[in-house]
Amino acid sequence: MADLVWLHEGALRLTHPVFAAGGPGAATVFIWDTDRLADSHVGIKRQLFIYETLAEMSESRSLDIHEGRTEEVLPRLAAQSNAGRVLVPSSPDPAVRAKIGAIRRAAPDLEIVEIEDTPFVTMANTPDLGRFFRYWNKAKKSALRPQGI
């Protein structure tokens, strides 16, 4: 069974690891969920920017934009494309995470796999996030020398 790549507005590039995980045959969808966009305060200017980006992506890869509630549309699309898994770029956004939870409740047999992006820095321990410079003091070495040169 093929995979279905579900994109959200935080990972709009074809070089994201989610595409390598899905392989060249994976269909790709973006759900234009107007309620979620409104709840997330996504104004019309940002909507235009996102849509332009999706339109350009669709020129070089099979990518469809579907309107509707994510938890209703995505399981239907997965069934239509005979997908056994949905691959989604991981996101810290609670709105995206809530939709993942809603899909799992709506379609418990559908496997959803979150794919991490390439990291900006690697650190041995969880950094102190209390203030930026506590984090930066730990992250700086990796940030400036990502290959450990």
Partner: peptide, 28 residues
């Protein structure tokens, strides 16, 4: 089961895309 029809991705210009988005969001 209803086949889901994707939204259009080709528009004459930015104004046409914007009008499409305004219609989707109910701000026509």
């Amino acid at each position: 089961m209803n086949e889901t029809i994707p939204l259009p991705t080709k528009f004459a210009d930015r104004a046409a895309m914007l009008a499409h988005l305004r219609a989707l969001s109910g701000h026509d």
